[in-house]
Design a protein around this nucleic acid. Structure first.
Lengths: 338, 338
DNA sequence: CGACGCCGTGGAATCGATTACACGGATGAT
DNA sequence: ATCATCCGTGTAATCGATTCCACGGCGTCG
């Protein structure tokens, strides 16, 4: 592959001049510029980003570490992150942690080794020492969706408390009293937050949330299935199951179907995170939708601000309830925007 | 961030020795080794991958350019690709083309500029001149899922013809005679192949496939919706719609629902690509499942073979029909493996 | 008419690694 | 005892860019 030296030779100038042309430095004669450009064209020259990064100490690359690519919520987030980053002149490298802390650390390490300019993280756990070190070590970092309390970096996330309140009110209004929740891992902020908001709102309505109605999940479908099976095996099973993410809702659906129960008559279901498929399940599923695109954009901008020396802003955007038929009542077939 | 020089100074040896220790070169004394390792530990040193890549002319990175991350099929493919690549000591950078040729070219160019060791591509179109140049230019390249006829690189894909034959037979057996298909872009191999197989099998059963029953889609949900609306507006609408990918099936589902039609009584639906949600739609959707994990593994191995100088193999694996209730008949609730 | 400054350009240092080559000392063979 | 060999180590070149500095030529101003 042609290097800058080859271009310089072809154009009959020095490498310094070629570099100036390519970086549109002002003091280059018109003649030199055209000669260089012609040489570039003739050789099909493309600057070596590796060499450039070594010299300039910047890669114009962002790392995005997410907990699970197979989760449509994160897939969508990743897509919008890349879009915004591209608009700002950055590339994105995605690291998929599969909800496994050690895999998360692996990706963080790899990304740091590649000297990415900044890191966008949705932590799969309570935060390894590695993540702490990275944040302290001066690598620009922003948390998105989930965050870690002790680490002082900007956080871009959705606030679900309002939407959870709406949900609980909706369920209560439909006459449901025994509400159960499948929680995310206690180590994640989103895991805790959603349970706490749920418990709080129930208390506000004078309802109890017994421990048996709190299923411990890990944001994966299988755990949603297990938790739901356990609920259904209780002497007094809940009337509603609220899954703290869409994959656990899928698992819950599996379990309900396996038992041959009808929804919403025998049991109701609601989920955090809205996805296109929830419109088409039987019945369509009531869910809490996050403003994914806005979150992604805000997160990338915060990170770019941090990298480029501006002051970044933490952002919290409200999530909203999308009522469908999975909890009962007659509702026109609504859908979330896509 | 500490460099190899700092480590050398700390350990009281030369940078050459440090490098030897880090690359486990045999001729280093035990004493020097322990001193270096201690220094590495003390400084928290991590080798700069950028500098290393510049010198060794390899990045141990694979580029994966897919047509649409939001398509669960490709998301899953990407996940398995990364998994296998990691096992082989490579990182993966994903480029999402969003079914847009110019975005695809953008990502290919970016990846080449970063001097990735090899490229895995599922082309969104018939192949730009850029892609041709890259393949000819000696960058190791492998096509996965879709490919481009004129370009001589290994292809790893699923063969859907057998499954399509099974599907058509299944539909015929249920008494359906007017079958329509929503095709993918003519520029993609998978787009054409699926239509051709479908047409061929219908001919084999003595059925015609009129042009009005061939919808032109682009593998996106909206196009599936439009095509289905057109089918339903016909004087004699089809009894079955077969969508050539899962997103167009989602769009078809939207259209069917919007018309208030019942499935499978008023109209039947089948799709290429099976995804977890198809089990939970109303009714569950009959689909053709690809062996995604195996495809991903085979593709990565072929690319690694190419990169490391071994002879790569093109691989074709069979897809299989998964019958559910969306086309009629009484079928036990089956699901694809996940 | 001479000095000063600016402009376009090239030479060379630099980023952080790897690695060819040279060198000194120890070891083994003759 | 001598010479060849091998081992551990260091010096320096190298990868492909960017950028500081110096230099020559030319225009401008006093």
């Amino acid at each position: 592959m042609a290097s800058i030296k080859d271009v310089a030779a072809e154009a009959g100038v020095s490498v310094a001049t070629v570099s100036r042309v390519l970086n549109s430095h002002p003091s280059v004669s018109e003649e030199a510029r055209t000669r260089v450009l012609a040489a570039v064209e003739a050789l099909g020259y493309r600057p070596n980003a590796v060499a450039r990064s070594l010299r300039t100490a910047q890669t114009r690359t962002l790392g995005l570490v997410i907990s699970d690519v197979l989760n449509p919520y994160f897939t969508e987030l990743a897509r919008f992150v890349e879009e915004e980053a591209r608009a700002l002149g950055y590339s994105v490298i995605i690291g998929n942690a599969d909800e496994r802390p050690e895999l998360q650390d692996h990706h963080i390490r790899t990304l740091i080794d590649r000297r990415i300019d900044g890191l966008l993280v949705s932590p799969a756990d309570g935060g390894s020492s590695l993540m702490r070190d990275v944040a302290l070590g001066g690598t620009p970092m922003v948390f998105v969706d989930r965050w870690i309390p002790g680490i002082d970096v900007p956080v871009v996330r959705a606030d679900g408390t309002g939407a959870v309140k709406d949900l609980v009110a909706h369920l209560h209004g439909l006459g449901h009293r025994r509400l159960a929740i499948i929680a995310g891992p206690a180590a994640t902020t989103t895991g805790n937050e959603r349970v706490e908001a749920f418990r709080e709102d129930m208390r506000g309505l004078g309802l109890a949330l017994p421990d048996a109605y709190i299923g411990q999940g890990d944001f994966q479908a299988a755990s949603g299935r297990r938790a739901t099976e356990r609920f259904l095996a209780l002497a007094e099973p809940p009337e509603v199951v609220f899954a703290a993410d869409n994959l656990m809702a899928l698992g819950a659906l599996d379990a309900i179907r396996a038992r041959g129960l009808r929804m919403p008559d025998d049991i109701a279901l609601a989920a955090f995170d809205d996805i296109p498929w929830f419109v088409h399940t039987d019945p369509p599923i009531t869910a809490i939708a996050q403003p994914t695109a806005d979150l992604a954009r805000a997160a990338v901008r915060a990170l770019a601000d941090l990298i480029e020396g501006r002051t970044p802003q933490s952002v919290t955007l409200p999530a909203r309830l999308v009522v469908r038929r999975s909890c009962g009542g007659a509702v026109t077939n609504q859908r979330s925007d896509r």
